[in-house]
């Protein structure tokens, strides 16, 4: 389990990292937390000739408030999200989800930027970023650009990120205060990717749902924003009929792969259950 040989680079700034990416081209890969890339390298499924470690770039660390938004810089780890007061108070769904990712050792290393940029359909944060309508801030040779999380994912490991670009930060609009939230993840064991998972953020007034956004993980080759499923519960008291309508609308857009986590029909079935559970738990938390 020894990776192929490579040259290691540790730039001190985003500009230096971009310069290295431009010079070294296709043979270079940026390294964030490394807990997707290094296992792939050990299996020789990836053999980059150059690794550009982003850990030396302090400008890629931290969680800050910018007006109504929360900006999480790309190299912020899941463990740091768990310890962030800003996340706990404004985006508690990120905390709940971080706790369901992998295991403690991996959360000390794994970063939000790596999780969303990798394009692995099993990763949990992309669906969350879609349901929250986050923007990804990207820097490249031609400067900065922003891509909405809802437009970023094109297929398994295919994203809007172009060669030579680095995803530097995630900008998330803060949900309304008093919102309810939940992330429900069915997995076979600690550390596994989801068999099916659903995230919900909703607001309620007088027992009636006033807004609802739903995201789905590992139920297609990209994360899914289940727009119709969310709309199906708005204006209802989240009675059984509304829950079923939402689950059915979510199931209609799922196209999971059959794998060790179960056949397609099973994964869609439990995907619908995750949607219903997340809706109920989010409603119970909505003020």
């Amino acid at each position: 389990m020894i990776p192929g040989p490579f040259t290691y680079h540790r730039p001190g700034s985003v500009a230096d990292a971009l310069k290295l990416l431009a010079e070294l081209g296709d043979e270079a890969r940026p390294l964030a937390g490394g807990h997707s890339l290094i296992p792939m390298m050990k299996l020789r499924l990836a053999s980059p000739e150059h690794l550009i470690d982003l850990h030396g770039i302090t400008a890629l660390k931290g969680v800050v408030r910018e007006g109504d938004r929360v900006v999480v810089r790309a190299m912020t780890t899941q463990h740091e999200l768990l310890g962030s007061d800003v996340i706990a108070s404004i985006l508690p769904i990120l905390k709940e989800t971080s706790l369901l990712i992998a295991d403690p050792q991996i959360r000390y290393c794994g970063t939000l930027g790596g999780n969303v940029a990798n394009g692995d359909p099993g990763n949990d944060m992309p669906a969350l970023m879609q349901l929250l309508n986050a923007d990804f801030l990207i820097e490249g040779p031609d400067g900065q650009r922003t891509v909405a999380a809802r437009d970023f994912y094109q297929g398994a490991y295919f994203t809007a990120l172009e060669p030579g670009e680095i995803l530097t930060a995630i900008s998330i609009p803060g949900p309304a205060s008093g919102h309810g939230y939940a992330y429900e993840k069915l997995k076979r064991k600690v550390g596994d990717y989801a068999t099916a998972a659903a995230g919900v953020v909703m607001t309620m007034e007088g027992g009636i749902v006033t807004s609802c956004s739903i995201g789905l993980t590992n139920l297609a080759d990209t994360p899914l924003w289940a727009q119709e499923a969310g709309e199906a519960v708005v204006g209802t008291s989240l009675d059984d009929a509304a829950l079923k309508r939402a689950a059915d609308a979510a199931i209609a857009i799922m196209s999971p792969a059959a794998d060790g986590r179960g056949p397609v029909e099973y994964r869609k079935h439990v995907g619908g259950i995750m949607v219903q559970r997340a809706l109920k738990r989010a409603a119970a938390r909505a003020a």
Binding site: M1, P39, Q105
Partner: peptide, 27 residues
Amino acid sequence: CETTHCGACTVDLDGRSVKSCTVFAVQ
């Protein structure tokens, strides 16, 4: 396991528990 699962290689690195089979020495 050498595959980031078992934790037998856990060490403390700058106050974080890490699986030392999934970190390069240069890091």
